[in-house]
Amino acid sequence: MVEARGLSKRFGDFLAVDSVDFAVVAGETFGFLGPNGAGKSSTMRMIGAVSPRAGGELLVFGLDPAADGPAIRQRLGVVPQQDNLDLELTVFENLFVYGRYFGLPAKLVRERAQELLEFVQLAERRDHRVEPLSGGMKRRLTIARALVNAPELMLLDEPTTGLDPQARHAVWERLYRLKQQGVTLVLTTHYMDEAEQLCDRLVVMDRGRIVAEGSPRELIARYVEREVVELRFAAGGDGRAGTLDGVGKRVEVLADRVLIGTDDGDATVAAVHARGVEPDSVLVRRSTLEDVFLSITGRTLVD
């Protein structure tokens, strides 16, 4: 569906996307995981045929966005990072107006809009104005809007950023349903749980480059240990972390906590106590993509 080789994006002198390679195949959910400024949106906008590339090659549906932008956009569904619904119009009108830009007959758009409103659970709001809707409802409406042309490929740029946990789960659930129906999804996120929940395959992006690639499981297996012991210290207590060297396989000292990668969490906790280190709190958990990112880049995903 999408193939990129050496793909780059430049803003003035600044290389926002630096020669990335990736391929998305039909039916999968593919993710770009990375912190703010990694170049995720820039990459998505190039795939969406709204932003010209600075270098490299890119094919979407086998077409070149530089030559066939409108034909590519005809077959895409786009959920942008920043909502751009028509606030003055009603929920239904937003879908209707948008669908008409794809050249679909009014009758068909009306039928689809109705179905999609049910799909995103906004049917009761059909004739309400968009402006007063909650953030989660707007996001779901944007997803419905992106589906109005029955796209072969859907691009979702940070679909749940800024939503409360309940609204996030509602969005995930809809995306999961789409995935089951075989819609190809490409999404960006800086939430590791989102990537783990939804993505079959993902690339980890940092400063315009792809630094790792694989399924969430593969990445965790390749880059980090099975479990993580998290130690929190009272303010100013981080100095004690020095004495933890060698206690687990990998020790990361962050501003507010110390993370120890290990294959046996309980044994590591015992070892920590044996060294006389007394943290305020101790937590043993499974490793996540967050730990993968940390081990590759030495930084956290969300600051």
């Binding site: 956009r73 942008p80 920043q82 751009n84 028509d86 830009y101 794809f102």
Partner: peptide, 9 residues
């Protein structure tokens, strides 16, 4: 920006 993502030029 929404329109720019559709086939409209």
């Amino acid at each position: 920006h929404a329109i720019a993502a559709t086939p409209v030029r």
